[in-house]
Design a protein around this nucleic acid. Structure first.
Lengths: 169, 169
DNA sequence: CATAACCGGTTTTATTCTGCAATCAGATTT
DNA sequence: AAATCTGATTGCAGAATAAAACCGGTTATG
């Protein structure tokens, strides 16, 4: 479960890591949805990942150093998955990919509002978001930026669109 | 050969398009290596793509509207593949992916110099490069920016590293 | 204390995708 | 006429993927 190293090209190597249908989806859910447990990733998966695929991908992402696994003290069977620094640095990649998809593919409004904010926020917002992820996943409270949580802002914008599109609630 | 549309999330949809080991590699070679013919893409492929895979991916990329195919007037059997505007707009995605790979994966110096320049150049350089690609692939000479060709600059930097690493030539 | 729900997965089976090598027919070059 | 080049296609074996059922242990609930 290691890289093929077909070539030393950065684009090739990155695609060897995230060039499949599920790896980036899992990282997206951990990053933007704050899913940290196996069942959370499985049940709330928009795209409906199968449990065997999820298990295989989590193992692979661990081998590649993009996530880590720790026991959850609150439950003897629970595992907590965390993003590593390498995965956190995928934020600009997520922003670029999300931005492209938003402009060229049949996205839904609710699900693309986060991509829009992330794109419009630019590198400054990405850095705040990455600092926030470091605080959450690497246990580095010093990394927590002041100001309002980027994650909270993204999710509030999402909720607002959902509310608006559902009409009066 | 269409998208699954597993969800309307921009990141998911983009990964449905480029989330495999070869699609982005082919677009990279067309974009940065100016490979326009089947044999060029096949023979000069660093990663060694197989001809059946290349044929299948070219067909798929056409169906998805990322490339177009035209007859080459110089040879009745030759086809010229061109990037569409949608594919050209993948430049920032390529830059982000290349930048991440350069920082986190075992890239070779020669092959990562382009990624480095593209990253350091930022949006201004990307726009120049995209304008240049429009001139080349969409036959829009008005799009050709003044100043020195980005493609030429990237390739010269690559050649310079190759020369330097080979010692005296 | 019984039992139902939850935990992170594994197993099974079927289907699809991938990679490799050989091959193809028409067009061009030598 | 022969060799080479063109964009592919075919056949095959092995790998990857997907769906569903299932598992033993843990925790919350009545």
């Amino acid at each position: 479960m290691t890289l093929d190293l077909r070539s030393g090209c950065p684009i090739n190597l990155t695609m060897e890591v995230i060039g499949d249908r599920w790896s980036l989806i899992i990282l997206r859910d951990m990053m933007f949805g704050n899913r940290r447990h196996f069942r959370e990733l499985l049940k709330h998966s928009l795209e409906g990942i199968a449990s065997n695929i999820l298990a295989a991908r989590l193992k692979r992402l661990m081998d590649l150093g993009l996530i880590t696994r720790a026991d959850d003290p609150s439950h003897k069977q629970k595992a907590i998955y965390s993003l590593t620094e390498a995965a956190i640095q995928l934020v600009p990649v997520m922003a670029a990919i999300g931005g492209w998809g938003r402009r060229h593919l049949p996205v839904t409004e609710e699900l693309s509002i986060r991509a829009q904010l992330l794109e419009e926020g630019g590198p400054d917002l990405w850095n705040d978001f990455m600092a926030e992820l470091r605080a959450i996943h690497l246990g580095d409270p010093a990394a927590q930026p002041p100001g309002k949580s980027v994650l909270a802002r993204l999710n509030e914008a999402y909720e607002a669109v959902v509310r608006r599109n559902n009409g009066a609630c």
